[in-house]
């Protein structure tokens, strides 16, 4: 029996785990975006704070994912075994590329363009929404793309704390010393990452040419 026969035979569970996986990534990305985009915008003008926040996000990034999942389990409110802990950890991972690219994307908008926008009498809010954000959008989107691809990979480890997802197959396969079972998790996860990367890449190109 090879891996795709295994997958076919277990397609309902593969489907279920894939959907679980997408749900975890989606929830984590939603949180990371809701926090990361406004925070990134707010940090553009505050250089010192920006260094600290990006530094902290960087440190989070260096914590091995399995350890981060473990660290969060005893934390009240967000902790415990299950999906919610995993989503918090995943959101923390996704935060750095989103924050970083939002800040640099906006900071790198041609100063002459921003100056003339202000000189024309745009309010700071109009400068942000009509000039800075549209021009920073491709860079911001590339951060979101990186964050999504990372999340899809890291989510496979979330199964270790009972969050479900495609990692369930991988951990089960490792325990059973059975490559077919591992591949039943790894291949759909890799495909998800590829699709997300391609899709967001296309979106990025389309807004760049807009």
């Amino acid at each position: 029996m090879n891996w795709y026969e295994f997958m076919l035979r277990n397609r309902s569970e593969v489907m279920e785990r894939t959907i679980e996986h997408i749900g975890l990534v989606g929830a984590a990305m939603a949180i990371a975006l809701v926090i990361g985009l406004p925070l990134g915008i707010a940090l553009v003008q505050r250089r010192t704070t920006r260094r600290w926040v990006l530094g902290a996000a960087n440190i989070v990034q260096t914590i091995p994912s399995l350890a981060l999942f473990g660290f969060l389990i005893p934390v009240p409110w967000i902790g415990g075994v299950g999906a919610s802990t995993a989503i918090v950890a995943l959101a923390l991972y996704a935060l750095l590329p989103i924050l970083h690219n939002t800040c640099t994307g906006i900071a790198e908008v041609n100063p002459a363009v921003v100056e003339s926008a202000r000189g024309m009498g745009m309010t700071p809010r109009q400068v942000l929404w009509q000039v800075q954000l549209p021009l920073a959008a491709p860079v911001m989107l590339s951060g979101i793309r990186v964050a999504t691809v990372i999340s899809i990979g890291v989510t496979t480890i979330a199964a270790a704390i009972g969050a479900g997802g495609l990692g369930v197959f991988i951990f089960r396969g490792v325990a059973m010393v059975n490559n077919q079972v591992i591949l039943a998790g790894a291949i759909p996860a890799a495909l998800l990452a590829l699709v997300a990367d391609l899709g967001l890449g296309l979106l990025q190109r389309s807004i760049k040419n807009r």
Partner: peptide, 20 residues
């Protein structure tokens, strides 16, 4: 300042046209 600037045309060397 916003009203003032809308009553003052401003042209700079780098032009600063909105590229998008």
């Amino acid at each position: 300042p916003i009203q003032l600037r809308r009553g003052i045309g401003y042209v700079i060397q780098d032009v600063g046209l909105f590229p998008h």
